[in-house]
Design a protein around this nucleic acid. Structure first.
Length: 103
DNA sequence: AACCTAATCACTA
DNA sequence: TAGTGATTAGGTT
């Protein structure tokens, strides 16, 4: 862990229910262009329940999941969770992404 | 201690 | 519109 990750989590915890953010935003928010690092850190997610890593999506609004390949199951679950929070999905992307996304 | 991998984003042709 | 490069952190060997 590092300050980088801590900031990410801090920012992530600030995300209200029914709202999402992007890896890019988090990365820019803390450092500059550690986009990957954000996802990396989230994947480890030491703050399991407090850090809603499912509220983090790609800059396009797509869920993302894993790079290139889609794990599928985990992503789908996240999708469900998001939907439960009021976020509407359109396929693998967030509907009204620009409205719910914090950027 | 070093190397390899990984949830992305942005820029250029 | 498509393709490639850049950058950081974490885990493993």
């Amino acid at each position: 862990m590092s300050i980088f990750a801590e900031k990410i989590y801090k920012q992530l915890k600030k995300i209200p229910k029914g709202r999402v953010t992007t890896y890019g935003f988090l990365a820019r928010s803390v450092d500059s262009k550690a986009y990957r690092a954000v996802g990396l850190v989230l994947s480890k997610n030491p703050y399991a329940p407090i850090v809603p890593c499912h509220r983090v999506v790609r800059s396009d609004g797509m869920i993302g999941g894993f790079m290139g390949k889609r794990d599928g199951q985990a992503v789908m679950k996240k999708k469900k969770m998001l939907e439960a929070e009021g976020i509407v999905f359109e396929g693998d992307s967030v509907k009204d992404f620009e409205k719910v996304a914090i950027k």
